[in-house]
Each structure stands twice: as C-alpha cells, then as structure tokens.
Design a protein around this nucleic acid. Structure first.
Lengths: 219, 219
DNA sequence: AAGTGGTCTAGACCACCTT
DNA sequence: AGGTGGTCTAGACCACTTC
C-alpha cells in the first residue's frame, strides 16, 4: 500500500489534488490502483506488463526483452489511390510515401508492415533516415514535429499469400495476425495508414478497462 | 468547438475544475479532444467508434448494429487443472465453472468462447441463468456483485482444429483470431480465464493512445 | 492583447472501509 | 471513530494559440 494521499501531500509539499493527479497517471499505466476507503496499492505486475500504448515496434520489442530489426523492402513516393486517399482523408493522387518493411525480433522474421504516410508537405522521409532512426515514429516526431497521438486499429486473422509466406518463412495459407491501423497526430490529422501481418509467433498484449461513466453502466 | 471551460463553469454553476473532470471523461471515451491554447473539439466520429472497453460480446455486437446470439456447448463445474489454477491464482483442484459457448452475430457463427470462472465460493452459475441473462458479465455483476474491471489480453493468429471448424462452418486449418483473456474484478481478483477463437469475419476494433507521462517520452 | 487549456493551491465535505 | 479515497470549490498563475 502506498502512503495516503494526505501523507504524500505533506511529505512532498504539494497539494493533495496534485498528488491525486500523479496517482491517476500511475493508475492509467496499470502501476497502481485505488480502492475507495481502503487505500492505493501496487498493481499485480501482470497488469502493467499488459498495458499497451501507441508506440513503435522497437519500443514494444524492448518491453518484451527482445531486439527489434527491420529490413526496408520498399520505399517510394506514390500518388494516393482512391482507397488510401479515402482512409487518410486527403485528395486522391496527393503524393504519399509508401514504406514496406520486414520486421524481426531477435533476428527472427515476425511480420510485414506496409505503411502509407501522409505528412504535411513538403515533409518526406528517405531510406537513409528510416534506417538511421530505426523507428519511423521517432523520425517524424524529431524531424518534422509530427507527434503520433492515437491509433485506430482493426485486428483479425488472415492467411499468408505467396509473398508473405516467402518473406516470413512460412507456408502459403498459414494463419497470420492482421492489424490495420490509422494513426492520428496530436493535431488530429490522419498521418498514416499501416497494414501489418504477423506470424503466429507474435502476440499483441492489451489491457482494457471498464468504461467508468455512469451512463455506460451496462455490462 | 465546445464552449470554453470558463464559460461552461458559469453556465452550469460548477467550478472550472469540475468542468475539466467532465471533459476528461469525454476525452477518455474519444468523444472530444482538447488542444492547449485552442479549445476543446468534438472528435472525428471514427475515434469514438474505435474505443474499446471491457464489456460483453453482446454489448460489442450492439455497438456494431448486430444482434448477438449464443449457444451453450458445455457448462460444468470441474476441479481446476494446474494450468488453470496457475492462471487464476487459485489452489489446484479448486472447483471452477467451465463455460463453452458458440457465439453468433445476426445468426452467423462467429466465434467460440471457452471460459473458466473462479467466483468466490459458493457462487455458481447455471445454464438457465446464463441463457436468461445472455451476458455472463451482467449475470455475475447483478447476482454476486462481482464487477469485471480489467481484461488482460493476448491476441494472435491460429488455425482451426476439427472441432472449431465444424462449429464455425469453416475448413480445418482456416485462420482464426485467438484471444486469451484474464479478467480481473474490481477487487483485483482473477475471476475468469477465457480463450476465444473467431473467424475472419470478426474483427477487434481498438483505440490506443500515446503514453503521456514525461518519463516515457520515447517513441 | 485576449482567449484558450494546463497546472496548482488550501480547504471542505461526502462515501466507503476497517477496527 | 478514524482513516481512506472521491468530489467539489474559488481562485491563481503559466503556456500556448490566434488575432
């Protein structure tokens, strides 16, 4: 159990409300939880381990204790198709950057990421930059100040086509985890559409909470 | 754009801090977002639509505009195996309820849910109750006061075995989405382990945010 | 300069839990 | 009864954005 909010506020010479805000941040990350009338306690470690946030493949790998790798299969500026333009809410034929990568963990091929980037012109990423930064999100954050803020994902199962199978070293028709993601920047611009296909060796870990508002007290 | 926090606080005769807390609740649900110095705005509707919370299959179906169905394949009280006992953090051979269901949307078989329930003794659920309530979570909340609060999920791809294939009406070896979940109650007890396998017709929609603490300003 | 959200304060009272 | 978290207040100042 943590010291009470009143105690912490005394020790730290801040107001109780400030302590509460800090505790809420820890709670959001699954590090602690508070029980009305009882106190605030450290969460079971599994809860924090399962927390998932919008971050890079590399950061996720690090959290699992693995080393992330990437091989750029393709990087090119292309005019957006109708489908891509619709998803990214841009005019068709606007130039977008397509970045297709083979991702690995500890040297084992684990998935294919096929991304379409719609950065505010004239921002462009190059092969050298992507290779240098390792993380696409870190690159566009540091170079262009575009901060990925939210990801909208659709997750399901699919089967490996010929190209996927060859790249991932599995048989054609093997089950894959497919995740499509639209990434929003902190300015709520749609900056990326990414389609990812992972082998059965890869798992998404996810923590979901109950919706807390009274209006949604439906189960 | 919403009225400013100061305006709302005047109109509603509450303090600005109270308004802010309400806005944070809406923001958590992806209904609005706030930009420092600019204002608070209604989110793109896709953001709210992709919000995912711990809820029942039936509620999720409702959100998609579909009707959820269930067929109970098996319900029985069994002593927990070592594996199940380990996951649920109970003594091996403690009696748990196994509940295996075929779930459908709009009459189409969509997935198999295989759950192991460890409710505080002597709580037990029966076939009649599960059929009557439709939702397992609602049943245990209303009947026993056990509130599902958090779900820890591991999501990946797998292939259909013979039994799955027959129940779901797909071929053996067809890709399925597999989701394992440990459900924690509001008292942080592990109350359920559930393994779910869904056809390619089913997708998880998920919204993930960026981790906001300064310490994790890594991308 | 004016308006916005972000942070912080010092205090009050309520609701819940444990003893 | 006493301790805990949950909610609310009225005000202050800071940081950011737009005009």
């Amino acid at each position: 159990m943590l010291p009470s909010e009143r105690d912490l506020s005394t020790y730290l010479n801040v107001s109780r409300d400030t302590v509460r805000k800090a505790v809420r941040l820890l709670e959001d990350q699954g590090i602690v939880y508070s029980d009305h009338g009882r106190g605030t306690f450290v969460s079971p470690s599994l809860v924090h381990a399962m927390s998932r946030f919008l971050g890079s493949f590399s950061l996720d790998a690090e959290k699992r204790g693995s080393k992330a790798g990437q091989k750029i299969l393709l990087i090119e500026d292309v005019p957006a198709s109708l489908a891509i333009a619709g998803i990214l809410e841009i005019e068709p034929r606007t130039i977008v950057t397509r970045l297709k990568r083979l991702r690995s963990m500890d040297g084992v091929p684990i998935g294919i990421q096929d991304a379409y980037l719609a950065l505010p012109a004239p921002a462009r990423v190059t092969r050298q930059e992507v290779e240098h930064y390792g993380s696409l999100y870190r690159l566009i954050a540091e170079k262009f100040g575009v901060i990925p803020a939210e990801g909208l994902e659709s997750i399901g199962a699919t089967s490996a086509g010929e190209e996927d199978a060859a790249l991932l070293g599995v048989g054609v028709g093997t089950p894959l985890l497919i995740c499509e993601r639209i990434t929003l920047s902190d300015r709520r611009q749609r900056i990326e559409y990414c389609e990812m296909r992972y082998t059965q060796a890869y798992r998404y870990n996810n923590r979901i909470d109950r919706q807390m508002t009274t209006a949604s007290f439906k189960i």
